[in-house]
Design a protein around this nucleic acid. Structure first.
Lengths: 116, 116
DNA sequence: GCGATCTACAACCGTTTGGTTGTACGTTTC
DNA sequence: GAAACGTACAACCAAACGGTTGTAGATCGC
């Protein structure tokens, strides 16, 4: 149910770091090994590897083994899915969303009345 | 220079929390006071207020004082600016970005050669 | 004026994050 | 087979995050 919310959390979180956004740009252009990526940044290999893992867990990149190298490539579909989430937000603003109440978190410790 | 990167950090970080995304949806529909928003979630007023502050610092919402109430409203332009960042990523993938090297972080402890 | 309401913010706390170093394991190369 | 390379992962650390409670300042209603 809030499965898409979990996914949104992971996607936005992955994008909320400039090093990860930079890695994503590189691997959207073409495949890069983790070591090749790590050489680009002024931090340890392990740190870059962790960033790659975060991107992978979010589905923004995928990895392919090639001998001892691990080639990462950007998943443009995932980028588009984030864009579509923002598009939905814009539709909310336009008032074009049919069942807004379904999009909104239905908590309301006052009794889930939500009628405002 | 990496001013836009700071902004991107703030925007994606603000969006990387489901409560904040939910608040954003509500205030994109129309103005809500902080108290009205806080009533919707099963957490303290202060917690919701902090979320609102994060959204405001990122520029995703703005606040307007009306008597003792503080009315928050969503800034759809900021949402669009995030969408355009993702659009730029997609263009990187398409190979349509003219000066990619300017988009990519130019670190390279090996001497900023970047020639790969 | 006084109580109730709306807001802001400080102080605190457990967990996560982003970084480090060190170790270990498969793969290539000679 | 041994050295070098590419990777993965554990353990550790300071800082940030998301939450809490408590205090305090404006503003409204009566």
């Amino acid at each position: 149910m809030d499965d898409t919310e979990d996914r949104a959390d992971a996607l936005f979180h992955a994008l909320a770091d400039r090093t990860r956004r930079d890695i994503l740009r590189r691997v959207l252009v073409g495949e890069h090994s983790v070591t090749a990526l790590a050489a680009k940044y002024d931090m340890s290999f392990a740190a870059v590897q962790k960033h790659v893992a975060v991107l992978e867990r979010a589905g923004l990149i995928s990895k392919r083994r090639s001998g001892r190298e691990n080639l990462a490539v950007g998943e443009v579909e995932a980028v588009r899915s984030v864009a579509s989430m923002l598009g939905e937000l814009e539709e909310v603003w336009r008032g074009r969303v049919a069942r807004i109440d379904e999009l909104l978190n239905t908590e309301g410790p006052t009794g889930t009345s939500e009628g405002e």
